[in-house]
Design a binder for these strands. Structure first.
Length: 735
DNA sequence: ATGTTTATTATTTTT
DNA sequence: TAATAAACAT
């Protein structure tokens, strides 16, 4: 039985899986079988140690990771896997607060505010606190408040840490913001964690309830936890101390979201008896890729040196290429993808292009479109952030919780129903003066016929709106969410509003609403009651990567951040330039620079078989075009691992001597060719060759480049001078 | 109340 | 550049 469950684990993995009593820290390098260890450890607990899955909680950062864990566990445990508590920190806390939050004065039907909701409430808080939005950027105040919450500081606690005038301002906004949240019966993402921690700290009954249930706690991606999340984990584990955390400090790329790698040190301090297991064997990448990764991460100072190894073959060399512009860079990627597909039988779905910023996806999308290459763009304009999706959700939220002011103000005049800025502003001010929530204030104003604040027309408009919402609220209890959604879009005229909108995107927007409805159907079928609450919770805590559908064969375009946790046989990293990776904003802070390096490391370690690194000679940024200096990170890759570098070498005969980079005619070189045409004897200058696409040409030069040869060929006709990699290019020596 | 023009500002975004 | 927000005019 015992050997059964842990069969196939290497000694370190087995050691981790078998350590079930007391604290455990698993430092898991990329591709070291982390998820495998977690799932097998749980299976071991259940099948060998007889622990009920009901008494195990596994916390992750993404719904996707949680689902993957559950799926894999189902294969090991069957239906019993469903008894396990697995989910994100936020989902865990939301259900904890939904269940027991009343003890802390929380309304059962609280809504969860996302980034956008938070910012619009914050904007109001800043207005009310009379803070000049020009001097104090919304984003930075938001970040400061979020950071305070992430270290468990409520306004009162934050007040004691205030040292500068700026922080004084933040405090004033923070207080106001919390007031508005409370009034809206809303929690932001940070509140979910913070309030859960406070509840467990302050209510012995609730703490005991969770203690008696959870015997074992596991935390995945521990390097990404913030102080509050770690505090939560510690509280939950304080009775049995059976806490297992898994992470990799080298893959910490979310410090800007208050993740604190020091939690790993804190863990060892808090649990001096913690067993530490290192998972260093990599099962994902070829040796060349792993060596590249190791050399890339090595220069970081704030780092514990760690060995990574693989028994895999070296595999193909890393390809480093320079393109002239980002357009050419994208084209080179697409052409290489096509080549791999045709010559190497690589599936499109096995390839991913990774970049630092979303704006870079544009050139890639265009190239894909031009070449008719199916692609899948992750992130970008995210589904749940789309206006039409948020509008419909806002209606449902107000139905569930009319105190939700952010949603209420969002929909009160969408579609336009003659309740303009002015009316709303006056009504909101009146409500505030009378100490009423907005919804109640509107009601009271209507009852008083405007009370001298609103004119008759506005009163009539508001009354119509309130009647509409009251009607919907009545119906809500009688039907499932999907049906309710249908009723909402019809009765409010929202569907018509979309379809008649002038911008011509109506159809597309309506499609998105339909998609949202599809998810409502899913919830409706899953839950016994109407499922409104479940649906709203789901859409609040779900992200787009979560339903990354890998059903269709398409090239994946993804940011480096989002790529964490994924793997692809072929990875293209584009924009390997100073200012982009590392990003310009991170270049003057050594700590941030180290995070950029980790980001680069994360990208590289996604690759299983082939890795391509591209940089451009010039890149358009914010209108203008700036010279692209190859990223400093490229310098850290040993030359012998690289197939070719076209950087700073140029054929002199084309009359561009002295200019780094590639000639303007050279638009397609490097992306074409075939991987099978390696020749025993390298070509020499003067040899006549033929190329499948470019036709006849004469070899200008042939120089060794790593294990390969770089051939410069002058082709006849308009193909011009090209530099090709001997092992890739379909060159044939002509007789 | 709403459509139009000008100004502003550009990372990453697990939840 | 291009997307969005605020100011402005209708």
């Amino acid at each position: 039985m015992q050997t059964d469950v842990l069969a196939g684990l290497n000694p370190a993995q087995r050691e981790a899986a078998e350590h079930i009593e007391g604290p455990l820290l698993i430092v898991a390098g990329p591709g070291s079988g982390k998820t495998r260890v977690i799932t097998h450890r749980i299976a071991y607990l259940v099948r060998v140690c007889g622990v009920s899955p009901y008494r195990i909680a596994a916390v992750t950062f993404t719904n996707k990771a949680a689902r993957e864990m559950r799926d894999r566990l189902e294969r090991l445990l069957g239906g019993r896997a469903l008894e396990l508590t697995s989910g994100t920190f936020h989902a865990f806390c939301a259900s904890l607060l939904r269940r027991d939050g009343q003890l802390a004065g929380l309304d059962r039907s609280f809504v969860i505010y996302d980034q956008e909701d938070q910012q619009s409430l914050l904007k109001r808080a800043m207005e009310e606190a009379k803070i000049d939005p020009k001097r104090y950027a919304l984003g930075s105040v938001h970040a400061a408040i979020s950071q305070a919450k992430s270290v468990l500081l409520e306004p009162a606690g934050y007040a004691t840490t205030v040292k500068s005038y700026y922080e004084e301002v933040v405090l004033r906004v923070y207080e106001r913001y919390q007031g508005l949240l409370a009034q809206s019966k809303a929690l932001d993402f940070d509140d979910l964690i913070l309030r859960a921690v406070r509840l467990l700290e302050q209510s012995p009954e609730v703490l005991e309830k969770y203690h008696s249930r959870y015997l074992h706690l596991m935390v995945d991606e521990f390097q990404d936890t913030n102080v509050a999340q770690y505090a939560l984990a510690r509280l939950l584990a304080s009775k049995y101390r059976n806490v297992c955390v898994v992470g990799d400090p080298d893959q910490s790329i979310y410090s800007w979201r208050n993740a604190d790698i020091r939690n790993i040190l804190s863990f060892q301090k808090d649990y001096p008896d913690a067993k530490v297991v290192n998972l260093g064997e990599n099962y994902r990448s070829t040796r060349n890729i792993l060596e590249t990764a190791k050399n890339l991460i090595a220069p970081n100072k704030a780092r514990i040196e760690r060995d990574l190894w693989t028994s895999k073959d070296p595999g193909p060399p890393i390809v480093v290429m320079e393109a002239h512009t980002e357009g050419e860079e994208a084209q080179m990627v697409v052409e290489e993808v096509e080549r791999l597909r045709k010559r190497e039988k690589v599936r499109l779905g096995d390839c991913a292009v990774m970049y630092r910023i979303n704006a870079q996806s544009r050139a890639l999308e265009e190239a894909c479109l031009r070449f008719g290459l199916p692609y899948r763009l992750i992130g970008g304009l995210r589904f749940y952030q789309r206006k039409e999706v948020k509008d419909v959700i806002a209606y449902l939220r107000v139905i569930q919780n009319p105190y939700d002011e952010v949603s209420l103000t969002r929909i009160i005049n969408t579609p336009p129903r003659a309740i303009g800025q002015r009316t709303l502003q006056d009504a909101a001010a009146w409500a505030r003066d009378n100490n009423l929530p907005l919804y109640a204030g509107l009601q009271a104003l209507v009852d008083r016929g405007g009370d001298g604040v609103l004119n008759a027309r506005s009163v009539a408009a508001v009354e119509r709106f309130l009647t509409l919402m009251v009607g919907l609220r009545e119906e809500a209890s009688k039907m499932g969410v999907a049906d309710l959604l249908d009723l909402v879009v019809e009765r409010t005229g929202y569907r018509q509003y979309l379809m008649e909108s002038s911008d011509g995107r109506g159809e597309e927007q309506w499609e998105n609403v339909r998609e949202l409805r599809g998810q409502a159907v899913e919830v409706q079928e899953l839950v016994e009651e109407q499922g409104l609450e479940a649906f709203l919770e789901k859409v609040a805590l779900v992200s787009d990567v979560d339903h990354l559908d890998d059903s269709k064969d398409a090239l994946t375009l993804i940011t480096l951040h989002q790529a964490k946790g994924l793997e692809f046989p072929v990875v293209f990293m584009v924009g390997m330039e100073e200012g982009l990776l590392p990003h310009a904003r991170s270049m003057d802070d050594p700590a941030e620079l180290e995070e950029e390096r980790r980001l680069c490391y994360v990208g590289v370690t996604r690759a299983q078989e082939r890795l391509y690194l591209y940089h451009a000679f010039r890149r358009s940024m914010m209108g203008g075009s700036v010279p692209g200096v190859p990223s400093r990170f490229l310098q850290d890759i040993p030359r012998e691992l690289i197939a070719t570098s076209t950087t700073a070498r140029v054929p002199s005969l084309s009359g561009m001597a002295g200019r780094p980079g590639r000639g303007p005619m050279d638009a397609t070189a490097g992306g074409n060719g075939r991987g099978t045409a390696s020749q025993a004897v390298p070509l020499k200058a003067g040899d006549h060759v033929t190329h499948k696409q470019f036709g006849e040409g004469i070899v200008v030069s042939c120089v060794a480049a790593g294990a390969d040869h770089e051939v410069t060929v002058a082709f006849k006709g308009n193909a011009g001078v090209k530099r090709l990699l001997l092992s890739f290019a379909p060159l044939e020596k002509a007789g």
